[in-house]
Amino acid sequence: MDRITLSNAEIFDGERALPGRSAVHIAGDKIVGVGPVPAGFEADETIDCSGMTVMPGMVSCHYHASMNFLKVSTFFDQPTGTERPPGVLMLSAANALKAALMTGYTGVIGAGSSDYIDPQLKMAMNEGIIVGPRILPCSHGLDTPGHSLNDPANMYWWKDMQKVGSFMFCSGPDEFQKAIRQEVRRGAEIIKIFATTGHGAEEPRNIKGFTTRELEAIVEA
């Protein structure tokens, strides 16, 4: 078991900054003391954290690991999740997760991805293939074909796309329940739906998206 002491650190415990500089003592994956050295503890390594702050890991509550090629100027030109081939998006997402971990995030909550990338990232981390913060994987963004007309996947209606990029389109309670069960079976732990338009985009008031029964079916699924 590795035993590490982080010395001379400014410490923020998540609620308040502790006075002065202090030390954090770690044994394996547990913090065993803050301040004085615990009885019987002898560090294998001491890291001088002068000028640094030790704090709990942060959690991003809306995280798109694979959307690293999006540009504001072209956001509405193509469906999100189609900017690059799936393999390239996956590798980019793995790099993004590592960067998140290295900048202090120990948890991220997925907010949607294409090609079931979120669940695959969790699988890869569990198997030790990549490193990153804990991830709560999200589904595709579920929507209706007559809703969110500002989304490219719906704008190009003549292509009649059921699933494209990070979007999946359903009509009727049965289709939504079937889609959700598939998403869960493939590793999604959060189901994302586009009940209203987002990102500051306006939508005509006469456009109806989800029916009440569709929303009820989504919850029941």
Rank of each mutant, 00 (worst) to 15 (best):
P79L: 10
F76Y: 13
Y116F: 15
M55P: 00
I109W: 07
V37N: 03
T53V: 13
G57M: 04
G40Y: 06
R16Q: 11
V34A: 02
S73M: 14
Y116E: 09
I47T: 04
R21M: 14
K30H: 09
I109S: 04
I31K: 06
A94W: 04
D48R: 05
G33Y: 02
M102R: 14
S66I: 15
A99N: 12
C49H: 01
V54E: 04
P86H: 02
P36V: 12
I47Y: 07
I11G: 00
Y116T: 10
A99H: 12
P38G: 03
R84K: 13
T106C: 02
K71E: 13
F69D: 07
V37D: 06
G110N: 03
V59D: 02
V24P: 06
V54R: 02
V108R: 06
A93W: 01
N68H: 09
K30P: 01
A100R: 00
G110C: 05
S73I: 15
L18I: 04
M52G: 03
G14D: 09
G33D: 04
H64Q: 09
T74R: 14
V54A: 00
G35K: 06
G28V: 03
L101E: 07
A96D: 09
V24W: 04
D29W: 05
L101F: 10
A27I: 00
S66P: 09
M90C: 10
G104M: 08
A94M: 14
K30N: 04
A94Q: 14
A100E: 03
G81P: 06
K71T: 12
S66Y: 09
T74Q: 13
A96N: 13
V37P: 04
S92C: 14
L18E: 01
V72Q: 12
D13W: 11
G110W: 00
A43H: 04
D115T: 15
S113E: 08
R84H: 05
M52K: 12
